[in-house]
Design a protein around this nucleic acid. Structure first.
Lengths: 228, 228
DNA sequence: AAATTTATGTACCACGTGGTTCATTTCTGT
DNA sequence: ACAGAAATGAACCACGTGGTACATAAATTT
């Protein structure tokens, strides 16, 4: 009754696959831990998340978690930075303004891709929510985070400058407000999906509804900057 | 060293004030517990929140918490419903469309008040965030919650119908999308204030910035529905 | 005045928590 | 072949957790 199934004698380093060297294997383990931890932190918050549970859900042990990360907080920071890295990678293509489209078209692309980015990275969105609940106690210390938004804002600024030059956009608004509007609607659509579904009694996960909200973000942005 | 300050002999019912009867005093205690618990749940999430801490921070004891609420979950539900009740009360005036203003003006009011409502009830916003992180596990069961959003949406629908009749608004959009845009921007401005401040390095708490964002929500809404 | 209900304090419980100790196994450089 | 390093398991620890048992003081009802 005690040792059922997996025999406990499997001690020492596990042989995942012989062809990768130590460092690579360590990276895999780390990544796996971070992956599982992301889910746990997102579901229960920093305080609520249990290292024991993370250990159980991953295919390592608590011992290995503390082998790779000094403490719970460090693991959480790693989770957050990994999430930022993922999203950073996902958006890189959209940042260069394409010269073959009008500023207004570029703005629409920008807005839609912002929505797409959040929608495709729900974990990231949920981590940001958790950070806001915790008053950004972790995000504050990690400067990997800091630069990202500034870059996105600059890209938007470039688009708007071009739009004004082209004569298609008005100039009496702050770019940062447009940024707030785009990010606000796009983020909220993902972050508050559950509560919205419950209180409005509608399903927002369908492809049709997704398309509606993607269009909404683009339309809203374009209408906000267009003349008259 | 053991019994410093407040003597332990103060047992039995506490004499808060002699002139209120039992029921009223009980309500005060309940309200106090809910108040303190709101802060704790909002700061640490459901799992992370500690009943011990709530007891310490309130001027009752853990014993009294479990006297008034069967379990942690029930306390949390009470916290959530209290928050909804507060916000519900706060918005009641704005819901009746005022006939002396144009539909467009009414829409602007609606949007601004949505922002105001969220801004003035940050705890409520933060609870909603927590609920979304928890996939609405509590909100789902409490139907006090359910009706509120529908009412708000109906009010918006009335405004839009009037705007179309007046000829000031286009009709080729879904009211619910406009609703998403307004609530999205307004909610996000409050819920993600911390992360936005950190990543953009600006202070969003000032009266000036507040005014900017209030205007933004109104402008955005009006521009979204205006013709051409 | 007695009985009952309401309200409260103290001490406690089993369990889960983040984190550690110690021993051991496998891999790697020489 | 062998020493040192990297990796892993098992058991453990002090403490905090949600929740309870028991006793009892005050207010209320009879």
């Amino acid at each position: 009754m005690k040792s059922e199934g997996r025999e406990k004698a499997r001690s020492g380093r596990r042989k995942l696959s012989a062809d990768q060297d130590g460092a690579a294997r360590a990276q895999v383990t780390r990544a796996n831990i971070i992956d599982v931890a992301t889910k746990e932190f997102v579901a229960h918050g920093f305080d609520g998340a249990s290292v024991n549970e993370i250990a159980k859900a991953s295919d390592t042990s608590k011992r290995m978690i503390y082998y790779h990360f000094a403490c719970k907080q460090e693991l959480y920071t790693a989770v957050l930075e990994a999430a930022y890295a993922r999203v950073g990678r996902a958006v890189v293509t959209s940042e260069l303004p394409q010269r073959d489209q009008s500023a207004m078209e570029a703005l629409r692309s920008y807005a839609c891709e912002a929505f797409e980015k959040f929608n495709a990275n729900e974990d990231f969105v949920r981590l940001i929510m958790a950070e806001n609940l915790a008053r950004g106690s972790t995000i504050q210390k990690s400067d990997i985070v800091r630069q990202r938004s500034r870059t996105n804002l600059s890209a938007l600024e470039a688009i708007c400058r071009r739009g004004v030059e082209e004569g298609s956009m008005r100039s009496d608004f702050r770019t940062v407000d447009l940024y707030f509007a785009i990010v606000g609607v796009a983020f909220h659509a993902v972050s508050n999906r559950t509560s919205t579904e419950i209180s409005l009694g509608m399903d927002l996960g369908s492809e049709a509804e997704l398309a509606y909200r993607r269009r909404l973000v683009g339309d809203m942005a374009c209408r906000y900057v267009c003349k008259i």
